[in-house]
Nucleic acid binder design. Structure first.
Length: 485
RNA sequence: GGCCCGUUGGUCAAGUGGUUAAGACACCGCCCUUUCAAGGCGGAGUCACGAGUUCAAUUCUCGUACGGGUCACCA
């Protein structure tokens, strides 16, 4: 009797720098495939390249996964049944398995120097594919002797010279390649570390990964991994290769497309939830569903590898902007208020202001957090007035009529008892009735007087609220003064 | 260059051997409105091309073009 194997995926980043959007999306899909099938998601650090190791990169990985809610079930920080989860701590395993392949004839030591290889690449004449296999046929006994004598070497995979290899990918379908196209790739480097090409197979098998999910750039090396699995007699996992994410010019996403790392986007003012939602829909869509706003919890329920596309997807900031707006509007008010406060406090410095109204006004207008300072600049500093600011065709307003209106308004506002929305609103409404003016005229004049800006976040009463009585009256006086002269 | 993969509006995309080929972003217009937004309503815009299979191809097959990936002691 067989137990259905539990789905297990892994996110296996190398600590070589920032958490790129492409990496994050791989992590997300890996997480979702596991969760959608009630399986496990694990984290493995692939630090076999000592030269590209970046200090702090591992911490950034933990941090990002955590704020995105992609919690793993096994990993370096929490352990698990198949540890260690850091490749540099698994070195002995790789060499054992490599020895096994050498013994079975599936691999061989290669003594070629990097210099010789470099020369070889320069030789345009030769039409060989990759390494010229010079060491492939050294007598095993002699090779073993040279290795024992301490001669520098790498271990290479002995590829079949004929036949073909076929595998099936969940996204790309059945793929077949001629074995003669495959290079005798390096499995163990001369420093004793495994290459990705070797370590991923060993670890995925040992860690019982059922679904190998990764970017489509690995598609062309997958046949080599299949041959490795076969050499060990291991079951080949399900492959799920993901389409690439490209920039708006169709080229691979890079710095010149703007912010492409998770942390940069957050710094730009995008909410992690919006970023996750955005990249979930890059190259994937739930069939027969037109909604596009999904929380991570909801994605876990509806995600299916079936909906993954093959074609590269363009990362569009327009759409991200929209998503972010949607998420901002759905935020619990208290949370949103706290975000606004954190940004606005230092800008208002010592000055008092009405955070609640500001947060309220900003909520429907902000695209990303980093827009806020510029949007509220007119509140934190007094901008210079210009007569034409008061001109509004529709309200039939101009500087002269504004001057009259503001003078009428001033005494009323100065004596208002309670400085709050309802009182101000009522007072202004009343003023319109008394003078027979249109509301748009009065409101418009006051709004510009308070803001010194044509386009503002919020209307006249809201601006008056945010500024507070003292500042609002001071600005009103300043406006009147300006219009007089 | 070899090999591999891809191609539904500007972008993300649903979908099918017979459909008026969904929806979203962006764009345009209107409404609402105390400005700007938000919101509501509406509009324009797509099956890369050429053969073949078929009563019928966007859908299946083969070519072409274009795009991408990969050919490291990087992952």
């Amino acid at each position: 009797m067989f137990m259905a194997k539990i789905t297990k995926t892994r996110f296996a980043p190398s600590p070589t720098g920032i958490m790129h959007i492409g990496n994050l999306r791989s992590a997300l899909y890996e997480y979702l495939i596991a969760r959608s099938e009630g399986g496990k998601f694990l984290l493995r650090i692939e630090d076999t390249d000592r030269e590209r190791y970046v200090e702090g990169a591992v911490e950034a990985i933990y941090r990002t996964l955590d704020v995105c809610g992609l919690h793993h079930d096994e990993g370096p920080d929490i352990g698990g049944p198949n540890g260690p989860y850091v490749q540099s701590e698994r070195l002995h395993l790789y060499s054992e398995y490599a020895d096994q392949l050498v013994a079975s004839g599936h691999a061989y030591p290669c003594f070629c120097s990097v210099e010789r290889l470099a020369d070889m690449w320069e030789d345009e004449e030769t039409e060989f594919i990759g390494y010229d296999r010079r060491c492939r046929d050294i007598d095993p006994a002699i090779a073993a002797h040279r290795v024992a004598a301490g001669e520098p070497h790498v271990i290479r995979q002995r590829m079949p010279l004929d036949g073909e290899t076929t595998f099936s990918d969940e996204v790309y379908g059945v793929i077949t390649v001629m074995n003669q196209e495959l290079e005798d790739q390096i499995l163990i480097k001369s420093d004793g570390y495994p290459t990705y090409n070797f370590a991923n197979v060993i670890d995925d098998h040992l860690m019982e990964i059922t679904h190998v999910v990764r970017g489509s750039e690995y598609l062309s090396s997958t046949p080599k991994y299949c041959i490795l699995y076969d050499a060990f007699g291991w079951e080949i996992p399900t492959f799920v290769h993901l389409p690439l994410i490209v920039g708006e010019d169709g080229k691979k996403l890079s710095k010149r497309h703007g912010s492409t790392s998770f942390e940069e986007l957050v710094k730009d003012g995008y909410l992690p939830e919006a970023i996750i939602n955005m990249i979930a829909f890059l190259g994937w869509a739930p069939g027969g569903e037109t909604r596009e706003i999904f929380s991570l919890d909801e994605l876990e329920k509806i995600f299916s590898a079936k909906g993954i596309n093959k074609a590269p997807a363009v990362f569009a900031y327009d759409k991200l902007n929209w998503m972010n707006e949607q998420y901002i509007r759905r935020l619990p008010f208290e949370k949103w208020r706290a975000m606004v406060k954190e940004i606005a406090d230092p800008l208002f410095d010592e000055k008092k202001y009405d955070v609640d109204t500001l947060a309220h006004v900003l909520r429907e207008r902000v695209t990303k957090l980093s827009d806020i300072p510029e949007m509220i600049r007119f509140l934190t500093e007094r901008l210079p007035y210009e007569r034409e600011l008061f001109f509004n065709k529709r309200a039939k307003l101009d500087a002269d009529s504004a001057s009259v209106i503001l003078n009428e308004l001033r005494p009323k506002l100065e004596t208002v008892a309670v400085w709050d929305e309802t009182t101000l609103s009522a007072l202004l409404g009343q003023a319109c009735e008394e003078t027979g003016r249109k509301k748009g005229q009065v409101m418009g004049a006051l709004r510009v007087a308070l803001a010194a800006q044509r386009v503002t976040s919020g209307g006249a009463t809201e601006t008056a609220m945010i500024l507070g009585r003292e500042e609002a009256l001071a600005r009103l006086a300043a406006a009147i003064d300006y219009l007089k002269g």
